[in-house]
Structures are given as structure tokens and as C-alpha cells.
Design a binder for these strands. Sequence first.
DNA 1: GACTAACCGAGACGGTACGTCCCGTCTTAAG
DNA 2: CTTAAGACGGGACGTACCGTCTCGGTTAGTC
Lengths: 209, 209, 209, 209
Amino acid sequence: MAAKEKLLRKDRTALIKTSRAGRPRSNASHAAILAAALKLLHAKGYRAVTIEGIAFEASVGKQTIYRWWRSKAEVILEAFARHTADRIAVPDSGNMQTDLEKFLVKAFDSLTHEAGEVVRGLMSEALIDPDFAESLRTIFIASRRRALRDILFKGVQRGELGSDVDIEFVIDLVYGAMWYRLLNRHAPLNHRFARQLSELVGDGLALSR
Amino acid sequence: MAAKEKLLRKDRTALIKTSRAGRPRSNASHAAILAAALKLLHAKGYRAVTIEGIAFEASVGKQTIYRWWRSKAEVILEAFARHTADRIAVPDSGNMQTDLEKFLVKAFDSLTHEAGEVVRGLMSEALIDPDFAESLRTIFIASRRRALRDILFKGVQRGELGSDVDIEFVIDLVYGAMWYRLLNRHAPLNHRFARQLSELVGDGLALSR
Amino acid sequence: MAAKEKLLRKDRTALIKTSRAGRPRSNASHAAILAAALKLLHAKGYRAVTIEGIAFEASVGKQTIYRWWRSKAEVILEAFARHTADRIAVPDSGNMQTDLEKFLVKAFDSLTHEAGEVVRGLMSEALIDPDFAESLRTIFIASRRRALRDILFKGVQRGELGSDVDIEFVIDLVYGAMWYRLLNRHAPLNHRFARQLSELVGDGLALSR
Amino acid sequence: MAAKEKLLRKDRTALIKTSRAGRPRSNASHAAILAAALKLLHAKGYRAVTIEGIAFEASVGKQTIYRWWRSKAEVILEAFARHTADRIAVPDSGNMQTDLEKFLVKAFDSLTHEAGEVVRGLMSEALIDPDFAESLRTIFIASRRRALRDILFKGVQRGELGSDVDIEFVIDLVYGAMWYRLLNRHAPLNHRFARQLSELVGDGLALSR
DNA sequence: GACTAACCGAGACGGTACGTCCCGTCTTAAG
DNA sequence: CTTAAGACGGGACGTACCGTCTCGGTTAGTC
């Protein structure tokens, strides 16, 4: 992680290890901020959410937000991540291609019907803010890659995928295609697309090299 | 295109067809604005460029910018597009895989060494501004897809790619992977990646379906 | 006047002499700001007036205030000065002591019943802000001294005051006593005090030296 | 004294008379706070001193300051008063005018070279805070008036000043003139001014009435 | 050759949100 | 019960830009 002149409180306390002095962080405020962020996100869309708006909605001082998060994107990311934490279930039917298709259908569905705008907003921020880009990579991107990696790895173990296949490359292919359509909106993230990607991985790459 | 209450001058004059009386658009100002945008882009990065900054740098009234462009992103897109217009050359060696690899290597190189930050900035804007998203799609994305489509289409004609292959899907795969790495920066856009993608298209998909 | 890195617009335009470019200053906004300042002053007292409050009350952007004034004190000073411009009438009965007493009674009355709190507020600001202190001296203090000087000077001409009397010192004495009671509030600014001061100047100093 | 809903600890303990159980007030903290206040006063000027700054500088909790003082002005007043407690010596040469001049020269000197800014700062606060105004009057103003009153009273006893002279009025005159110059800075508090005031009191008023 | 219309530079305008400072209060654990 | 520490809700600050507006002035084509 890059060195920061001005650490957030949570980073400072993490460093100092046992910082017990002073009034402890308010869980109520923490929760209220995340709830307010989600509410505003729903009500007005990513773009219209502001730190000031969140603070007002959560009946919280702006400083309390700035104490614990670096930007509105970080707040929204945490709110969104909590809200969807348990949703990245990895199916396990015994067949890689089936699992992959199921997994993608579910992801596409979520992105199409609810999460799409938020995810686009978060990515928008990451593209102009390197600090947040790292957060997004660590918290969001990495966990999705891990889920996909699980599916593919099981495929390798079962012999459905050649053991010489570059799994990270395959992940880039699949998620790349997904993000490309998510961001550009030139084509839908539908069932057909999920099937095409699953078949590519299941059939096309099975024989590769 | 979405209906707008307030058309830009270029749209209006395009509609009316024959330009009417009055002082004509200043080419000098037009050029100065694009030049200033590029200069600021280089000097301070996408995020720090503002309409006000461009106007000041170009010694131009803000209104003159708003008369001809909808946002700073549109200005930068035009400046950037002009600046790289002739760069999307499509190689034609007689072999699809070779052409594809060459094409990708060149694109990756440009994105890694110069254009990356600007392209990320433009995409950032497109993600929160539907109007600009359409501009980006029309002006930037579409032309790159066309170039790639040319290469693949020639491959089909030569029999290097099955005629039943879904070319648009292949384009999504290739550009998806590229953008995914460009945006997330979790892995480099290097020669190896170009080769992997070319081989996938050349070998792996040759037999598909 | 001390050199300033950041000149106010009025200072800049004064320097450049003929600055005609750009939208001219809005008289309506100017007047609305002063009116709002006075209104808030009345309604909530000096301390509770804020730039933000004035801007809101005047339906004006904060920047518009900062463009033309350095601080809320400057705004209030201008509003207050306009509001009381014609009030510093110099009586001319033909007798210095009578004139002086009348003049003081009127001033004391105003300070006791309306202006006192504002004047205390302005002085409070001047005491911690050298820039404003100069404004207050130039705009407020100087004009009151001039009025008193007029009265005393006429006294000298009529022979009611020795021509060797140090008029500036007498002004310091009279206004000093007045401010001292105004600021410390340890004794009232009443008719008796006005008479004591007038007698001092009329009798006591007539013979001095 | 005005009725307060929330008494300071020192007022409470004074009322209850016998201090109760629990950890006693820390003299070290008390001293550290006053020292820190003085240090910051010197280093950055009255305006830049804040409760938070004092607390940090003194390694003291903010609450500890609020427990014993009402505002930063009260802290600074106490620090300043202790620091200059023994300085208000009343000279006694046997001659009122000489004593007065000496007394004023010393006061002017102090105000010109060290205390001026602090005193202006304290007065600034008193002008917008009635509670502190009372403190300043009680602690600061009253003691200086007492000293001057001593000098004048001795003059009356010796016959140097008419017994019918309104001493409080004379005090207002002398201190008024001093404060007026101190606050407005339109003229210096120099030896000449001290002499003028002393002569006024010694000569001018001796004969008056 | 004047008229007229759209352009241009400059920059003021109302407004939104920013990120910071400091206020005075509160909530901990430690003494 | 005090203390150091520091989080809290809150108010205001002064700034950055937004997109719009209003000036004086410029530069064509049309009457």
C-alpha cells in the first residue's frame, strides 16, 4: 500500500495496535452512515450521492465520515459489499460448465437488475482515484476472481479443463467480457452470453494447446 | 440519440443545413481549445482538467466551449480522437493470427505508455454520464471494434476462422480482456497477453461449435 | 495600504482603471447583500450573522460576497455606514460647548439605543483583524473624528478654545471616554456624561496652557 | 453575576464549601494549561489560539479545560493576569502629576511592547461575549481603575486636585484616551501622550469648576 | 455601406459540494 | 471524581467549478 501522510483512524489504530484511549468508535453512527449511503444510492443514483447528503441523512457530522473513509466511493463500496457479501455463492453441481453458467447467469442477473449502476459508479471512481482503485481491487474484484477461480480449479481437478490452462487468463477472458458489456452497454448481459462464455471455457479451452 | 431540449450549435446548424448570417465559428479558438485540453491532460492528468482551466489556458470564453461541446469529456474525446486518428491501422499480412497479434501489441503499447490514463478518464466519465457514454461508444469504441472486425472477417474469408463463429462475441472476448486489465491494472497489457489472445482466437476458436 | 496577494475585484478594477470586459457587477445583488446583512443584524445580533446566512438571505452565492468583501465585518460595516451616513450631522448654534453637548447627546443616544451592539461587534473584529481595522479606521472612525474636529475648529475660530490647544488630543479625550464606556459598559452614556465632557472642553481647556 | 444553568467546578466547590471525595484537581494540568496558553499566544497570536490547541500543547484533555474555564478568553485572561500581576505598581513620589505620568508611561510601554496584542484580543472577546466581558471588567479593568484611583485620591488629599472633582470621570478620561489609542492604533501611546494626560489632570482640572 | 445576427473574450452570477477547523459534549479506561 | 484521549453532532469557513448570464466588441452575410 502506498504511504499516506494522513492516515484514516482505522489505519492508525491498526498500526498502533492497542489504542484504547478516547471514546470508541460509534457502531450506531457507522451503521447509520452505511444505511444512509444505500438509501440514497437507491433513491437518487450513484452520481447524486454526496458525502454531505449521507451525513445529513444519517444525522452525523461530515467529519465522522471523513474520519473513517477516504471518499464517498469508499463508503458506498463498504455499504455495497456488506449488502452483497453472501451473494457470491459458488455452485457445485459436479460439472464445471454447468457451474460456470449458473454462476454467470446469477451474476449477470444481479448486474442487470440492481447492482449495475452502483458497480459502474464505483468503477468510474476507481478510474480517476488510484487509492480507491486499490480498495476496489482488494475488496470487490479480488473476491469475485476467487469465486471464479474456485469453479475453474475444480474443473481442472476433475479433468474437465486441461491442467496446462492458464487459469488467470481464463478469468480475465470471462470477467473481461462481462465488464466490457457492463460498462459499454453495447450488448446485454443475458443467458445466451453466459452460455457462450461457459461453452468457450468448457469446450473450446478443454482442447487448447 | 436522446432528445435534447437544448441542442449544441453544431447540431442546430447541421439541421438547418445552410448556415445563416452572423460571425462564423472561430477555427483558431476551436484549435486552441483542443490544444489546451491536450496540454492540461498531459500536465496535470485527466482528473485535474476542468472547463474553466481549458478556457483560461486557451484564452477563450467558457461559453465558447459550452457552445460546441457538452462537457469536458467531449472536448477531451475530440482532442484525443484527432490526436490518434491515424493510429488504428489494420495490419494485413495474409495471416489472421499474425495480424491480430500485431494489432493488439500496438494497441497495448499505446495504452501502456501514453493513452491509458486518458482512456481511463474518458471511460470514468462515460460511466456516470449516459450522453457522453453514447459519444464514447460512437466515436471511440465503435471504430476500434470495426478494426478488429476487419481482421476477423478476413480470417473467416480465408478459412482461418469458422464461418459459424460469432464474430461480435469474439470481439467482446478480446476487447473485454484488454479493457479489464486496462481498468483494473491487476496484470500488464504485454506481448504475452497479446499472444495468448491471438492464439485463443486463431487456434481455440477455429474448431469451436 | 498593505500589499495583498489576493485583491478583491473592486481593488483590481480600480487599479486597471478601465476594466470593461465581462459581465458587470450586479447592483441588485450588491443591494440585496447589504439589506440582508442589516436584516440579520437586527434579527439575531452581530455575533450570529454569518457570511453563509447573508448569502442565503440575499439569495446570492457565497462567492459573490467574497468577490467584493473581505469578511462579514466589511459587509456589515458598509451596510451600517450607508444606513447611518446622513446621521452625523454637525450642529452649528454659534456656541461650541452647546454644539458639542448636542452632538454627544445624539451620538450617545444612538449608541445606547440602536447602534451600540453593532459598533461593539465591528470593533471586536477590528481588534483581531488588521485589515479590517484599517477599514474601520478609514470609513468609520475617521469620519466621526472629522465631525468632532469641525466643532472644535469652529470653537477655536470664535475664540472659545485656545488656539494653542491640541485638537487631536481633545478628540482622543472625548471619543476615548465615549468608547471606553461603550466597550466596558461600566457606566452609561447619558446626558450627564455628555455635559461633563462638553464642560471639560469648554471650560477646563479654554484656560489650559 | 448572571445566573448560570451550568456552573463551573470552581464555582460549585466554592458553593459547597468543603471539597468532596474523588481525585483532586491536578495542579500540574492547571499550570500546563496556562503555560501552553501563554506559549501559543506568543507563538501565533491571540486569534490563532484555540481550546483544542491549548489542550494539545498542554497534553491535557479538552474537558479538563472546560471544567475549569468558560472559554479560551478566560484561560488567557488568567494566564495573562498571573503573568502581569505584580506589574501594576503605584508610584508614590509625593506629587500626583509626577506619579500619574510615571504610571502612564509604564502602562503605555507595556501595552506598546508586549501586552498590546493580548489586551486587544481579550477586549475583542469581551465585546461579543457578555459573560467574559464581566470577567474582564472584574479581573482586569477594575484593578487598573483602582490603581489610578489611588493616585488621584492621594492628589485630592494633598490638595493637588479639587475635592469636588469627579474622580470616576477623570479615570474614564484617562483610561478612555489610552484605550482609544490602543484599540484604534491611529496614534502612539508614547511619553508625550502620557505627559499631556498628566498635565490635563494636574493643571486643567485642578482649577476647574 | 448599414444592418443584423451569431460569434467571441471576459468575467460576474446563483448554486452545490467540497474538505477543514473548531466548537462544546460525550464516552471510554486508567488513576 | 478527575484525567488524557479522542470520537461525536454540528456550524461555518473559504474554495473550486459548475453551467448560465450579460457586457462590449468583432466578423461575416444580407439588404
